[in-house]
């Protein structure tokens, strides 16, 4: 049991990293990876929302969509609505409970609704048939993997600012090529977890 959970973490963070191997969450990956500080904030906010979404998606799927046979035609609509309202709720709760935390990552919260990593996790959980604990760990691992990718990339991009990049490759192009090299490194983790 514990071993399975450990494998889920290793698999989502390293082997099947959501950014480098599943191709999810590229918009914030390109948009907010300029500075390490903002990358950490965005990563934390996304991890938080992802864990909550995973739990919510599990409950909606197994207690509403599945028993009433609504999965084929209401899954997309209900998941996106739940994610949007969840993000809104988290934003209000964080603002009320801890204004300091809100200042740290509150500004990134509205952007998370249209981050495809959140919807991706919600859609993958029913596909994989995870139970409640496994779903939570899956969401957490996805968030940690995303944070890792974002922080790695931001560190490299801070150095890229001072390097001599060919004129045509400046901007997103060189970021893609760097991401390609990072993805190659992540290929090295293949086979680490049997999932």
């Amino acid at each position: 049991m514990l071993k399975d959970l450990f494998f889920i973490i290793v698999s989502t963070v390293l082997v099947n990293n959501f950014v480098f191997s599943r191709f999810l969450g590229h918009c914030p990956f390109l948009g907010v990876s300029n500075k390490t500080e903002t990358a950490v904030g965005m990563g934390m906010a996304t991890t938080f929302v992802l864990t909550m979404t995973a739990v919510a998606a599990y409950f909606i799927q197994s207690f509403i969509l599945e028993p009433f046979g609504l999965t084929p035609f209401l899954q997309i609509v209900s998941f996106i609505l739940v994610i949007a309202s969840l993000v809104q709720l988290v934003e209000m709760a964080v603002l009320k409970i801890s204004p300091a935390l809100y200042n740290a990552f509150g500004i990134y919260l509205p952007l998370i609704t249209t981050n495809c990593i959140v919807m991706g996790v919600a859609l993958l959980i029913p596909q994989k048939g995870y139970n409640l604990i496994e779903s939570t760990i899956f969401g957490l691992g996805a968030g940690l993997g995303f944070t890792l990718a974002l922080v790695l990339m931001s560190g490299i991009r801070e150095e890229l600012e001072f390097s001599d990049v060919p004129e045509a490759l400046k901007g997103p192009a060189i970021v893609f090529i760097t991401a390609g090299l990072l993805a190659m490194i992540f290929l090295g983790f293949t086979g680490l977890a049997p999932l």
Partner: peptide
């Protein structure tokens, strides 16, 4: 490698560069 994830990033980066 072109079929694996890194290939997608590399091709995308180079094509964006060519379009630039």
């Amino acid at each position: 490698i072109m079929m694996l994830p890194p290939g997608a990033f590399l091709v995308m980066g180079i094509l964006v560069g060519i379009m630039n």
